[in-house]
């Protein structure tokens, strides 16, 4: 089964108003070719879920700067002045979630869990509007799961079935978002034949992956 396709096959999957998860940490491990595709298509009203809004000229940051995004669910926007500007102007809604909570919410969304019970944020404004629970004498917040219509994953190496491998710190959100979306697209630096990535070192099993595009890095 060969899932390798051209960007033109991905195009009709991307539409205005979708909720999209995108891998990367300040742009490291972000599928830039798929970002380019969204920019070219001029998509609007997107909800983006990712670690941060990166820099104006990198990764998710380019979508913010170009006005493609209606809402960002992230842990940090400080490195992209456009995010703060648009938030204050009221054109961008920002939901800030603590980084460890955010990734667990995505993991919960992809793992059939009803939520995350975490001590992070107790006693801060993060708890506003959320249910609190007392377990064994300690307070926790109940944080709800996150899912997306489509996940845009970066991988360093992928076989034609979608088994993926991530170098260095490019892993970050990538293996987790691959669990939490209806459609999973992997943009990869290198495509190899099935069998060339040993099952022992596969980080994302190909069964999770719907489409693979060869990135132009």
């Amino acid at each position: 089964m060969n899932k390798v396709v051209d960007y033109s096959v991905i195009k009709p999957l991307l539409k205005d108003g979708l909720t999209i998860m995108i891998g990367g940490f300040l742009g490291c491990g972000t599928p830039e070719g798929l970002i380019n595709l969204i920019l070219e298509m001029g998509l609007k009203e997107l909800t983006i879920i990712g670690n941060d809004t990166s820099f104006v000229d990198k990764g998710i940051g380019r979508l913010i700067a170009n006005g493609n995004v209606k809402k960002a669910i992230v842990s940090h926007i400080g490195t992209n002045p456009e995010s703060g500007k648009q938030m204050h102007e009221g054109t961008l809604e920002v939901e800030l979630s603590p980084q460890g909570t955010l990734i667990e919410r995505i993991r919960a969304g992809g793992s059939g869990l009803g939520g995350v019970i975490t001590p992070t944020g107790v006693g801060t404004i993060v708890e506003e509007g959320k249910e609190k629970i007392l377990l064994q004498g300690k307070e926790y917040l109940i944080e709800l799961p996150l899912r997306a219509d489509i996940a845009l994953v970066f991988a360093s190496k992928t076989d034609t079935f979608g088994n993926a491998y991530y170098k260095g710190t490019t892993k970050n959100f990538n293996p987790i978002i691959a669990l939490a979306a209806d459609i999973v697209v992997v943009e990869t630096e290198e495509i190899v034949e099935v069998g060339e990535i040993h099952p022992e070192v596969v980080m994302t099993p190909g069964v999770l992956v719907d489409y693979i595009v060869k990135g132009d890095f």
Partner: peptide, 30 residues
């Protein structure tokens, strides 16, 4: 380009180091 720190700057890793995803990273933290 595949090895950065939490500030987005390039770093190196020691020979006894290890990489992991964000969920594992925050399991270490919390």
């Amino acid at each position: 380009k595949n090895i950065t720190n939490a500030g987005g700057q390039y770093v190196t890793i020691n020979s006894n180091g290890a990489y992991f995803d964000s969920a594992f990273s925050f399991s270490l933290i919390r």
